[in-house]
Computed example of a mutant assay.
Amino acid sequence: MVLLSQQTVNYNPSGSYSARVERVIDGDTFEIAAAPPAPGPPSVVAQQLLKVRLFGIDAPERNQPGGPQATKFLTQWMGKQNVTVYPMGTDMYGRLIARIVTDRSKDVSLELAFTGNAWWYTATAPGATDIRDAELVARGEKKALWSASAPIEPWRWRQGIR
């Protein structure tokens, strides 16, 4: 068995930056106070609140079974700590899509998948096999949402499939 939650990550730092988590919105979305990389001295770059969607996962919606637990897990896991942001793009809602690494060198998407609080989101991250493997471990150990007999994927829940 692979202990994915014990792995540390070393992403390419090009384009990465530090930020402080300000507010968790749900199990895969939160706001950060950040000063993204920009030309000029750091004192000139104003901080802003950015809404971030975690790369490669989809957590249950707040009104979905498992949603409150995923939100609680993310809130407890991240708190108001400093993180490293690895931007991957933006989504159709204007949210930053990013891999986030805590000050303990833990990938937040991996932790949510490994603990059974999120699905691997193949629609946006088909190559994220590390997240796939974390989900497989959680499924096998029936962690969190995988303890239910037939959990419904968030993307199906949003379509009204109950």
Rank of each mutant, 00 (worst) to 15 (best):
M1A: 11
V2N: 11
V2W: 11
L3R: 14
S5Y: 06
S5R: 14
T8I: 06
T8F: 02
N10I: 07
Y11D: 08
Y11G: 02
N12E: 06
P13S: 14
S14A: 14
G15L: 10
G15W: 11
G15K: 03
S16V: 06
S18T: 12
V21E: 02
V21K: 02
V21F: 05
V24S: 04
D26M: 03
G27I: 02
G27W: 01
T29K: 00
F30Y: 11
E31M: 09
E31R: 06
I32P: 06
A35E: 05
P36M: 13
P37Y: 11
P37D: 09
P41E: 10
P41T: 10
P42T: 03
S43N: 07
V45I: 14
A46Y: 09
Q47C: 11
L49E: 07
K51G: 04
R53C: 00
R53M: 01
G56M: 05
A59R: 01
A59N: 03
A59G: 06
P60E: 03
P60S: 05
E61M: 07
E61Q: 14
Q64C: 10
G66P: 09
G66Y: 04
G66N: 09
G67C: 06
G67H: 09
Q69E: 15
Q69V: 06
F73M: 10
F73T: 03
F73E: 10
F73I: 01
F73P: 01
T75P: 13
T75A: 15
Q76K: 13
N82H: 11
V83S: 08
P87I: 05
P87E: 09
P87A: 13
M88W: 10
M92C: 08
M92G: 12
R95P: 00
R95S: 05
I97F: 13
I100R: 05
T102Q: 13
L110D: 02
L112K: 00
A113I: 02
A113R: 02
N117W: 02
N117K: 09
A118M: 11
T122Q: 14
T122L: 08
T122A: 12
A123Q: 01
T124I: 09
T124E: 07
P126T: 13
G127R: 04
G127A: 07
A128W: 03
T129C: 01
T129E: 07
D130R: 12
I131S: 02
R132M: 01
R132P: 00
D133Y: 07
A134I: 00
G140Q: 11
E141D: 12
E141T: 06
K142Q: 14
K143N: 05
K143E: 03
A144G: 03
W146H: 11
W146V: 05
A150T: 03
P151G: 14
P151L: 13
P154W: 02
P154M: 08
W157I: 03
R158K: 15
R158C: 07
G160D: 06
I161K: 00
R162L: 05
